[in-house]
Nucleic acid binder design. Structure first.
Lengths: 122, 122
DNA sequence: GCCTACATGTAGAAAGCCTACATGTAGGCT
DNA sequence: AGCCTACATGTAGGCTTTCTACATGTAGGC
């Protein structure tokens, strides 16, 4: 177990992968391998997304027009670097508010007593 | 969209249904139809889970030993009322902490700048 | 008689995430 | 040279769970 919270159960990610990928690409383009590391780092070690999930997902997002990827060779190794398109940036905004709605709804059901400041909720 | 918080996209629920169902049954037994209404009420109208999702899920949870259901007839209508078993109560505890880990991890990735007080984690 | 609310259930489809495998370069160690 | 690890990408097939649509039946209002 990683200190501060073990791994996240794999299937729970379903439907939220897009938001995660778009989010790590928000401020800088990255290639797949680096994206996986960024995901792990940002989540505090909780997210270990397998390559078999990430690479197809990146292609899906590229196909959808949210990402633009191009090949580069660095140190003899081929990389496909992805950057967010303007369309992807808009999608990220939508994904973020969708996440807030979702997390809020689930949270209210799981912990009905807890009052969350409505100021931040959207 | 809908005033007060539009709907949650349907597929996002994947993997969190169990937690929701166990949670609404925590303090009182309910039947399927009432569970759906409770889910809507508690989430502030954000969750509209269709019957075709709830009924099979309840059976799955009963089969798993987390719920115990029994038939009753009220006002000429047949109801299957479910209550949490001790096993289900334990599962709920696990689901809740899994949710916190999950939501925390996703939140950190989506909003890296935001510092969440770990003190109030529980 | 008809329609809505209450109440449960099944069948088939769709989605996307995971496991496991396949491929290839670069560099360190023995 | 040979081996192993890190870097880097990709495919195939399976699996779980949810959704959509449909089917069934009672009770009560109009």
């Amino acid at each position: 177990m990683v200190s501060g919270g073990g791994g996240v159960s794999p299937d729970a990610l379903r439907g939220h992968m897009d938001a995660l990928l778009l989010s790590v690409l928000e401020h800088e383009p990255l290639h797949g391998y680096a994206i996986i590391e960024a995901l792990q780092a940002r989540s505090g070690g909780a997210l270990s997304v397998p390559t078999g999930t990430v690479y197809p997902a990146l292609r899906r997002l590229e196909h959808a027009g949210y990402l633009a990827g191009e090949w580069a060779t660095v140190g003899g190794r081929r990389r496909r670097t992805y950057r967010l398109t303007s369309s992807g940036r808009a999608a990220l905004t939508g994904e973020r508010s969708a996440w807030r709605r979702f997390a809020g709804a689930i949270g209210r059901v799981l912990d009905p007593g807890v009052m969350r400041g409505p100021a931040g909720g959207a």
